[in-house]
Write a protein that binds this DNA or RNA. Sequence first.
DNA 1: AAAACTTGACCGTACGCGCC
DNA 2: GGCGCGTACGGTCAAGTTTT
Length: 291
Amino acid sequence: MTEVKEKTTVTELPITALRPFEEHPYKVVDNEEMASLVESIYTQGILTPITVRPLDNGEYEIVSGHRRLFACQKLGITAIPAIVKELSREEAIVAMVDANLHRDHILPSEKAFAYKMKLDAIKRQGERTDLTSAQLGQRLTSVEKIAAESDESKSQVQRYISLTRLIPELLQMVDDGKIALTPAVELSKLHHLTQRLVYEICDMDDLTPSYSQTVRMRKLADEGALGEDAIREIMSEEKANQRERIVIYMDDIKQYYPRNMLPKDIVADIKNLLHKRRLEQMRRKENRDAR
DNA sequence: AAAACTTGACCGTACGCGCC
DNA sequence: GGCGCGTACGGTCAAGTTTT
């Protein structure tokens, strides 16, 4: 959360003086959620003022409250209570993203561009958080900072950000729930022209790429061997088999190798392996419990 | 139960920057 | 230019969860 150090005032602003935030990543859609917001404003008025920042030309840029504005426009309301904050563009981006990320329903594409905008804004702000001794112990990278302020891990934030490299059509498929997050991340690594091929093939035959299929596509692309035929072949196959997992059970081994026939060093290796795996499991559990 | 997907963690590499 | 350091990010793994 960005702390508000500037003076803030609540005031009624005519909606004609309001401008949407430039390139804001959120989609204001007229759906059921919007209908209930309209209903709520109709019966109770606007409970939370929108947040805006003043522009040089006397107008105000909306930091948070695009959906409330849309609802007011639908109801024919001409003025709206607003908190006016003196914020730089970068500060406004961080505030806008934070305000919207806590919504109940947020599309993957919205999250992706929100995280990306916030990351770019934090980088541009160039804050040195590594200089004071008080902060020395909790030095954070930009992505870690975003992760700490959201309820997701650094990896997850990076995955969402990689979705911004998807072509709009594939991103729409992610929003529609046709492609899951991790397959989408794999597709984002493909060249845009290849992504378009994938989209066209999926769209034509109403197919949805699975994680394993997208991994195979990406590997082929890395080798420079992913063309239209290869994509068709991968997409037309049955969903891939579960990835290979090697599980060792001592009882199984004993069944095939009587005790005196199994070389001692192999037994030692296996025991060592199992021991390491147990330690790893315990460590993971401790990490989880600590959080 | 198998398959698909999610999630967190870790590692390696590339890059930019300041310093010598 | 070489070096050390911090940072970003891609790749991978393993375990957990959800879906079929």
